[in-house]
Design a protein around this nucleic acid. Structure first.
Length: 424
RNA sequence: GGAGAGGUGGCCGAGCGGUUGAAGGCACUUCGUUGGAAGCGAAGCAACAUCCAAAAGGUGUUCGAGGGUUCGAAUCCCUCCCUCUCCGCCA
């Protein structure tokens, strides 16, 4: 949620910023509603103050043993006036709140201009694609050769966009998640967290998936208040919902390995082959809760933590700064990590690291007590994949494939594979 | 699923129709005492919204959530949510 104060004092500046996303802020609509809200609120406050004073004087009169009947009549009039204006105020307030929840975050000044992903800017590259002495296969062919994938079985069990893994490939998938968790907890100072995979509307509203993106989520008909998590960002970030954190507890760094569930509505026909785009996938997620002054630096660090996974696995990748039109709803600035996939001959997203600044914190009422002001102020929240497990599996299979159809296991994963050096 | 007990400020905890935004305690801040600290003493200390250019200050809302009764609700009634205990079921 945007800072309502900023919206009130300088709506045109807000509109200019949002225009970079291609979003048109209806300033006139806001002004109209806000003016109504203000007038109603002032009048409601005044009436309530009058009623409160009146009630107090009734109590005092009663205490003196006087007849309160004439006073009660006046009270009834005041009560009905308060009820009337309250009803009006509630309508306006609700409309304003809903409108506000649908406005995306302001962009950081460093975000490059651009309408879509073609305008994203490569920031740096690490590692070079290895030359193969043969035509590299994609992960589906490799995995099926190892009898490690069974997409036919998955579609019989559940339908499209699901996977069944088996044997060494299934274990490699688990090894990747374990390795990432260990790396982040041991080397990067994150605390491992286990969270619910079903979350409430309130939690999803806090991180920004609701109310706008309900169609991307899997609902639970049995209990309409719950949804499957589309990312661990939702339960993990909501750890600090409604909290006022002591300054010395910040920064908080959490890491969680969870499945993620996405409807992929609107992705019909996109990435239908293989593991790239699934309704269910595993992800190791990094979340940080920091002091506002530290969040820009924290984004750089969090991104580096995600990069460390790819570097340790020896996977070539690049870091891309998302442009204004490609940045997610709640983010002020986002870096994507794209890993090299020889089977596709291109870089594909494997991690997305975002600084949401105070956007989620305001929705969640997540605050810290600023020692300089003594006041509770919104924290800044960040999240990033560290990294997507399924896509990491794809990347390892494709980058470490051999002409004989086997796959060499990267050194750092071997302890998690019972010491095995290859899949074949 | 059944029975019972609860949900009050950053935390603990009193209040059970009218100067209660809420006693008391802890934590925190400041001051005094001290060479310094501990200890002790004193004072301050909820959030949110709103009015005011700002500060000071004023006003409103908030005692799990929503509705109701009343001139007036933390306090009475209803519905829901959550927590705890016991029983059942269960990985």
């Amino acid at each position: 949620m945007l800072d309502p104060k900023l919206l009130r004092t300088d709506p045109d500046a807000v509109a200019r910023n949002l225009a970079r996303r291609g979003v048109t802020l209806d300033v006139a609509f806001f002004r109209t509603l806000e003016d109504q809200r203000k007038a109603l609120q002032i009048e409601a406050d005044r009436l309530r103050a009058e009623r409160n004073n009146h009630s107090k004087s009734v109590g005092a009169a009663k205490g003196r043993g006087e007849d309160i009947a004439p006073l009660t009549a006046r009270g009834e009039v005041l009560a009905s006036e308060v009820a009337r204006i309250d009803a009006e105020l509630t309508v306006v307030q609700r409309e304003l709140d809903q409108w506000l929840l649908g406005i995306p975050n302001l962009l950081d000044a460093s975000v490059p201009d651009g309408r879509d992903e073609t305008a994203n800017v490569e920031v740096r590259r690490s590692g070079a694609p290895k030359p193969f002495g043969f035509e590299p296969k994609d992960h589906v062919a490799i995995g099926e050769g190892l009898e490690g994938f069974d997409f036919d079985a998955a579609s019989r069990i559940s339908g499209a966009r699901f996977a069944v893994m088996r044997g060494g490939v299934a274990r490699l998938h688990r090894a990747l998640a374990q390795f990432m968790l260990d790396l982040h907890t041991r080397e990067h100072g994150y605390t491992e967290i286990y969270v619910p995979y079903l979350v409430s509307r309130a939690s999803l509203t806090g991180t920004g998936q609701l109310p706008k993106f309900e169609q991307d989520l899997f609902a639970v008909p049995h209990d309409p208040s719950l949804f499957l998590i589309p990312t661990a960002e939702v339960p993990v970030t909501n750890l600090v919902r409604d909290a006022i954190l002591a300054a010395d507890r910040l920064p908080l760094r959490f890491v969680a390995h969870t499945p993620c569930f996405r409807s992929e509505a609107g992705a019909y026909g996109k990435d239908t082959r293989g593991l790239i785009r699934q309704h269910q996938f595993d992800k190791v997620e990094l979340v940080q809760v920091v002091r506002p002054a530290d969040s820009a630096q924290a984004l750089e660090e969090l991104t580096a933590h995600a990069e460390a996974v790819l570097a340790a696995l020896g996977l070539p990748y690049r870091v891309v700064a998302l442009c204004a039109g490609d940045i997610g709803f709640g983010s002020a600035k986002t870096y994507d990590l794209e890993v090299w996939l020889p089977g596709q001959g291109k870089f594909r997203e494997i991690s997305s690291c975002s600084n949401c600044e105070a956007f989620q914190a305001r929705r969640m009422q997540a605050r810290w007590r600023n020692p300089e002001t003594g006041k509770p102020e919104p924290v800044h929240t960040l999240n990033g994949s560290g990294v997507a497990v399924g896509r990491a599996l794809v990347a390892v299979l494709e980058n470490y494939q051999r002409e004989d159809g086997g796959v060499t296991i990267p050194d750092v994963l071997r302890p998690y594979m019972g010491g095995a050096k290859e899949l074949r």
